[in-house]
Design a binder for these strands. Structure first.
Lengths: 146, 146
DNA sequence: CCCATGTCAGTATTACTGACATTG
DNA sequence: CCAATGTCAGTAGTACTGACATGG
């Protein structure tokens, strides 16, 4: 009687969908040796090579300390290269990193395809547009990375 | 060039939306002294009074150990009552718990309303339906609590 | 001098696995 | 006996805040 019905709540459906997606991604990415967070970093670095750690952090919405230790693992695995020194250390995928990301991205795409399988192309676009509206309504901030 | 474009990916939009929603809920619920997880437990207990801890755990998709410590906090705060003993301990909201949940639910509803503000009633139903399809496509398991 | 950054360290939170007694 | 449960304990993974040196 507290005015929130789980079977009707869009928020609940949203949580369930994201949770299922994350779980599926986590499972598939584990086969490539990546966590979801690591995958997110690699994806951003591929699309925007030359980011600094701080910029990367802003791009994935965590602190620079969090990405710092993420990157420690990625560097140790030889997936990410650092060029430059001092305050201005630029990040980019190594050759190996690109290869791994290609495999990982294929796995992620497979999961996403499974999720969207019951939807038509029009419905997929609708979903994307509706979700984007929701994000903007909650967070009027700037989505892209500087 | 790894076939995943962040600006097009439904999965990314989904993650962003849920993340924004969770953050907003977390902030509002903190004013009532609840975490999102605790709120989820209270909501389920209101709709299905008499659940055991193990059933509650299945309902919120975590282990019974996780809900056990969640409940420790909720009991200490006087929000949840336990009746019965042994293996069959039934849970329910206390009078105070109901009151708190009412306030919390109002806060959550406000957040959800903000999120859905740019959407028409028809669009909200669409979004809910599309998300439900996604969940089912990823996880053909049974959603409800036994 | 100032601000952003890289980095090290510690802390908090959370859910997990393991283990065990109990109960129906 | 067995399966499920409540419970205690330890572990892991993650992101956080604090602090400090550096560099432009």
């Amino acid at each position: 009687m507290s005015q929130v019905d789980v079977t009707t709540s869009v928020g609940y459906a949203l949580k369930r969908a994201q949770s299922a997606l994350h779980a599926a991604m986590d499972q598939r990415l584990a086969e490539v040796g990546l966590s979801v967070s690591q995958y997110a970093c690699l994806t951003l670095l591929e699309q925007r090579p030359g980011l600094t750690n701080a910029e990367l952090a802003r791009g994935v919405f965590v602190t620079r300390q969090a990405t710092h230790q993420l990157l420690t693992g990625l560097r140790r695995a030889g997936l990410v290269d650092t060029t430059g020194s001092g305050r201005d250390q630029r990040l980019s995928l190594s050759r190996h990193g690109s290869t791994v990301l290609t495999v990982a991205a294929a796995a992620v795409r497979a999961v996403e395809d499974q999720m969207l399988a019951p939807l038509s192309a029009t419905q997929r676009e609708s979903l994307h547009r509706l979700l984007s509206s929701c994000v903007e309504a909650l967070d009027p901030g700037p989505p892209p990375v500087g």
